[in-house]
């Protein structure tokens, strides 16, 4: 099996990983302020703290690979190359949004980038990625499908069905479980039997990996191996990244199920961006100033995107009747 040494990754690629992580962090924090200002209708689920898991995973993908995301999906979609301006516009319910205001934060999709959509149903992505897997096999391409899910979704029956089906047909799929320790308010320690989610891979006779979800290079290494394996036609794998979300299940969540100390401790000791910035400085790839410039560039891009979204028109009410069918 080809061993991808993450430290052999080019400095340019490493910088790109940091840039994407920072862009996601700034995007999510901006969503939080827009939501607090009551400019975003409905509810939003943020993934601040999980950037390494997402960016490390998507780093292993080609533009023509497919992803299916979750209700906590902004990061996956950005990491796969979506444009923040259409994402903000969608979050604000604008006509210029990815889904013309019909999907909102939880259902952003960009089919031009093979992002088959965030999904409002926990565990709803598994069956869809199975279909992408069959499609890839039938079309005889070497694409890969990646489905993101959390510790909560690992307890859905869809997970078992999809793992079995993917294993039986050796579908080119990578299951990426971002275990952020809480399914809404329920700790994974109380809800997930068997000790780990990746461990369930044994039951299907496929590889299962657990990796440090706050270390982007560790995630990239493991996921790359799973992706390469899928691309070679050797079938699916499960990768579990141990990660953490700093914000509640949704914005406004009172979070009575965990302590502020727990969150602070994680932020101080395992923040994925802090950690990676230190690595890049130690390796002499980036200076403090260069890192500051990355943050400034992300802020500029996000502010431009927010401005685009804010200035965009709302849809006409009658547009609610469009897009039900191709041929009504």
């Amino acid at each position: 099996m080809a061993y991808i040494d993450p430290y052999a990754m080019s400095p340019e690629k490493k910088i790109a990983l940091l840039e994407t992580m920072v862009l996601i962090r700034v995007f999510e924090e901006r969503v939080a302020t827009l939501f607090a200002q009551q400019l975003i209708p409905g509810f939003v689920h943020l993934s601040i703290g999980q950037e390494a898991s997402t960016v490390g995973s998507c780093a292993a993908l080609r533009p023509d690979d497919y992803i299916v995301s979750t209700h906590r999906g902004h990061a996956h979609i950005l990491a796969k190359g979506a444009d923040p301006k259409y994402m903000f516009a969608e979050c604000l319910g604008k006509k210029t949004g990815y889904c013309k205001g019909k999907g909102g934060s939880m259902h952003i999709a960009d089919f031009s980038k093979n992002i088959l959509g965030a999904n409002g149903v926990v565990g709803g992505g598994f069956p869809i990625i199975i279909g992408a897997g069959f499609s890839i096999k039938l079309r005889k391409t070497d694409q890969v499908g990646m489905v993101f899910f959390g510790d909560g979704a690992s307890n859905r029956g869809t997970f078992h069905e999809a793992c079995n089906m993917a294993a039986v047909f050796k579908l080119p799929i990578v299951f990426v479980c971002e275990n952020n320790m809480y399914a809404s308010t329920s700790p994974a320690s109380k809800m997930v039997a068997g000790g780990s989610i990746a461990g369930r891979a044994h039951a299907y006779g496929i590889p299962g990996f657990i990796t440090d979800g706050s270390n982007v290079l560790a995630v990239a290494e493991v996921v790359q191996e799973a992706v390469d394996r899928a691309r070679r036609g050797e079938g699916p794998s499960i990768v579990e990244t141990e990660t953490y979300r700093y914000k509640g299940h949704f914005e406004g969540d009172k979070q009575k199920y965990r302590t502020q100390d727990e969150i602070q401790n994680y932020r101080m000791t395992r923040d994925p961006i802090d950690r990676f910035e230190r690595v890049l400085q130690e390796e002499g790839i980036l200076t403090k100033t260069a890192i500051k410039e990355i943050w400034a560039a992300a802020h500029t891009r996000i502010e431009e995107a927010v401005r685009f979204a804010m200035e965009s028109p709302l849809p006409e009410p009658e547009e609610a009747l469009d897009d039900v069918f191709v041929n009504p």
Binding site: Y66, V68, P127, I129, I130, G131, A132, S135, L138, M165
Partner: peptide
């Protein structure tokens, strides 16, 4: 789900 995912990806 397989039908849905396959339809979304060109089948």
């Amino acid at each position: 789900g397989a039908g849905i995912g396959a339809a979304l990806t060109g089948m």
